[in-house]
Design a protein around this nucleic acid. Sequence first.
DNA 1: ATAAATAATTTAACACTGTTAAGCAAAGGT
DNA 2: ACCTTTGCTTAACAGTGTTAAATTATTTAT
Lengths: 199, 199
Amino acid sequence: MGSKERIARLKEETRMNILDASLEIVKEEGWQSLSMRKIADRIEYTAPIIYEYFQNKEGILLELTRQGYIILAREIRAARGQHVEPAVQLEAMWTAYWDFAFKYKELYQLMYGVDMNCCELKKRMPEADLADEQIYDVIEQLITVKNRSEDFVCRKFYTFWSIIHGLISINLVNKGRNEEMNQRILKDAIKGIIKYINE
Amino acid sequence: MGSKERIARLKEETRMNILDASLEIVKEEGWQSLSMRKIADRIEYTAPIIYEYFQNKEGILLELTRQGYIILAREIRAARGQHVEPAVQLEAMWTAYWDFAFKYKELYQLMYGVDMNCCELKKRMPEADLADEQIYDVIEQLITVKNRSEDFVCRKFYTFWSIIHGLISINLVNKGRNEEMNQRILKDAIKGIIKYINE
DNA sequence: ATAAATAATTTAACACTGTTAAGCAAAGGT
DNA sequence: ACCTTTGCTTAACAGTGTTAAATTATTTAT
């Protein structure tokens, strides 16, 4: 009765086909545009079939999320394995994290709730700069070394912004964190960046 | 002919009602659940009316985004105004940024593309910790001072993670940034955190 | 005041979405 | 041969954004 196994293998294959098709569609058209019927089209079935392999659409997303975490862990482990000194290891690991985010950006989006819709119109919104300008202004005052490039100021700005936005995002997505710890991380980071702002 | 103005005022009022209703719905049920018909229900009209005030649904979101930026700028300006020394100003401004993000979290989400759906299931996903554990491990090796609390390691981890995730998010949402600058920000930040990891 | 014109609002429809239930056709077992 | 199970599709439901047509209300002109 090897046909049982053959069938199970085929089932496993279409399950993977569903996941592959989903990721393909997302790569081509974005998450917003992923639909059950489009997936069904690619795997040459009709939509209801998918519900024999996944509980619902979110089930597919959840499985892709899971795969993302696995790939990320693999890449980070590999990065670590190429070095021995912890400081070097750590830098390589975070670099691997960075590379993963852009190599598998669709998965990263899914894993960490980074929505990337409608940027064209937002970019042209002058109000978006109102806050930034203020902060730029103060940062420039803090930089005492003369003739710093505009790039330098920009880098400092993004360093601040990144850590704050990152911490906020992490807290908004995985809500219910340690507020006291957040405040310490935030204050420490800000003080740290200000302290060595001229380097 | 003051009726013209009265009508204009009424129109402006329902325009604002649409925006208010939208935000209310989002606060109660999340962005995912915002629909034109629900908005219409709240303002006691039918859906097509909304299209006389906004080009489409995205038009509403865009206007809310705009309002968000304006509020944020106002709060940051106020924070700055309460201090004179730049270093203190800057910390207060970033704190205002932080506070804004949570006080107006729905707007922050919209402005910076922070998606916060389906966390319950993701949190219970063991694969999500695979990468984190590795990094935790190396961070612990880097901390030479004995008897550091688990909290301390955790804080360092989140400091790393925040800046990297923040920078990634910013790049994914506002795509097409300066890759060289990103690398410098990233490397500098990582080196900086490692350097003062025992403080 | 009545008729015509204009504005305001709704209803109906279209093409989608996720999802479920019913139907059908082929295969397997007895 | 019949019955049951399996695989798959069609049809349907309730919802989405959006548009065009129909309807109602209001204003304007005669």
